[in-house]
Design a protein around this nucleic acid. Structure first.
Length: 221
DNA sequence: AAGAGGATGAACT
DNA sequence: GTTCATCCTCTTG
């Protein structure tokens, strides 16, 4: 029933398609015998070297971004604003610096521990809405950048529990927080489960949404 | 060696 | 709507 996603899933060449397909999958961590998991409801695709919003834009290769050039299925975690640990999944083959940012999950397993990690007393959207928030709830830090998600003994992985999200139920928009990326900032590479209350965004980001119409990358309001 | 800035979140007014 | 915490990474000199 719960199958850990294999390298075949991650190594596909189209990072935008992988980003869409990650909706409805379950992101799981197992640290010190404590398992926490949530259902992915929001993602964004980043595609080096042509995507200016991507850390690997223009084939930029640094110690931090090196893992993006590894084969699909590795975790890429980096520190943002000195505070937030942002979790990405590397996709495509070795040398292709593509990755999917996980932006929001619906809390599912061991919500008590997620609350404790966040310092929250009650369950609310902010528990796991937003890339920094979900990483904290799941206990993910930059120490885990580079772990192979497909490996049977990895402390982080992504599962298929059988959920299937129809295209009609998926919302699409421009990516959040990448205004300085010029034209690339307009690319509709953010995907989310339209009806989910667990999606991030403080209102402003919910504007300019589109809905998938078929698999040919055509969009309509 | 130094400085700017970032794929955010939370707490304000 | 605005402010700011916080620190690593990268660029420049």
């Amino acid at each position: 029933m719960a199958a850990r996603l294999s390298t075949d899933f991650y190594r596909r060449s189209d990072v935008v398609q992988v980003s869409r397909d990650l909706l409805g999958k379950y992101l799981v961590t197992l640290f010190d015998g404590e398992l926490t998991a949530g259902r992915i409801v929001e993602t964004e695709a980043y595609r080096g070297p042509d995507d200016k919003a991507c850390h690997a834009w223009n084939n930029r290769l640094t110690p931090r971004t090196r893992v993006m050039y590894e084969q699909g299925g590795h975790a890429y975690v980096y520190l943002c604003y000195g505070i937030h640990h942002l979790f990405n999944v590397v996709t495509a083959g070795e040398g292709e610096a593509h990755a999917v940012l996980i932006r929001a999950i619906e809390p599912v397993d061991n919500i008590e521990l997620m609350l404790a990690r966040r310092g929250f007393g009650t369950v609310k959207r902010q528990l796991t809405a937003g890339p920094g928030a979900l990483s904290k709830a799941l206990g993910i830090t930059t120490a885990y950048s580079g772990v192979p998600l497909w490996s049977a003994d990895s402390p982080i992985w992504i599962e298929d529990r059988g959920d299937r999200i129809a295209d009609a139920d998926i919302g699409v928009s421009a990516r959040i927080g990448v205004e300085s990326a010029g034209e690339c900032a307009l690319w509709p590479w953010r995907f989310f489960v339209g009806a989910s209350p667990w999606v991030s965004g403080r209102g402003r980001e919910r504007g300019r949404e589109y809905r998938i119409c078929g698999n040919d990358h055509s969009f309509s309001k």
